[in-house]
Write a protein that binds this DNA or RNA. Structure first.
Length: 264
DNA sequence: ATGGTCGTGGTACGA
């Protein structure tokens, strides 16, 4: 079972890349972030033609997440609990049958939070992270393999960015952000990529501006967080960096993991 | 030269 997360930065602008990548990588379950379209605008037919089931949680112009899967989910839930009046489409959950049980795969697009002195944006990020931790704690009680996959907009550690000086005052790196991320680790979630390699640095995002990609000025903000029941089955991970060299790339690349689960 | 780019929707904003 191969799982993946990818902030695609506009699914309609990225359709050719998405199709090419699905054909090449052939993941079983994919969480997409920043589809930047309403549900009706998602290029559903093109993805279904590749044998994928498509579930979306869209929004006009911004945000939006989707779940693509070779197997049909038994259950899909949209929206992160606890956000009374939160209109932003940033979270969805799918439950999939596998041999011997289920896996629960959540696709999340965590708020950016910049600028940190804005009266709304950084508090929204931190409260969203609180809601995510509460959700995670609730789901952990099910004792299922649980994957929290997505664009966290969190640089977990100093070696996850090309220059700490450039990021230390940023909402992606400020101490409260990293503390909130560590709460997930302390609940028992494993950062799959970090757990399966000693290599550093590892990046998943390179800004379009300032020649960040050719200079390898990247950050690692897209994560696959695994509950104990999932990390027990972790085989390998990868950051599909070559996709950043394709024409009209997203500024993020796919992050994948292979887990030792078999289809029903 | 001290910025530099995208996508979306509509000529601003978020990242």
């Amino acid at each position: 079972m191969k799982i993946a997360t990818w902030n695609i930065n506009g699914v309609r602008a990225r359709l050719d890349n998405l199709v090419a990548w699905l054909k090449e990588s052939s993941p079983d379950i994919v969480g997409l972030q920043e589809i930047k379209t309403v549900d009706e605008g998602f290029p559903r037919a093109e993805i279904e033609a590749l044998g994928y089931h498509v579930e979306t949680h869209g929004q006009k112009g911004f945000n939006g997440v989707a779940l693509l899967s070779k197997i049909r989910p038994d259950e899909v839930n949209r929206g992160l609990p606890g956000g009374d009046g939160d209109e932003q489409s940033r979270f969805m959950e799918g439950v999939f049958s596998v041999k011997g049980g289920v896996i629960r795969f959540c696709c999340l697009y965590l708020p950016n939070g910049n600028p940190p002195d804005d009266p709304v944006k950084y508090p929204y990020k931190l409260s969203w992270m609180d809601r995510l931790a509460a959700f995670a704690e609730d789901r952990l009680a099910l004792e299922e393999p649980l994957i929290l996959a997505g664009d966290y907009n969190v640089i977990p550690e100093p070696h996850d960015c090309w220059d700490v000086k450039a990021w230390e005052k940023d909402a992606l790196y400020l101490p409260p952000t990293r503390q909130a991320f560590r709460r997930l680790e302390n609940l028992g979630f494993t950062d799959a990529v970090r757990a399966s390699t000693d290599a550093a640095p590892l990046y998943t995002f390179w800004d379009y501006q300032a020649g960040c990609w050719p200079k390898n000025n990247g950050i690692r903000i897209d994560h696959l967080m695994l509950s104990a029941e999932a990390s027990d089955r972790l085989v390998s991970t990868g950051i599909e960096k070559h996709v950043r060299n394709w024409e009209k790339p997203s500024d993020h690349v796919p992050v994948v993991a292979v887990l030792d689960f078999a289809a029903v």
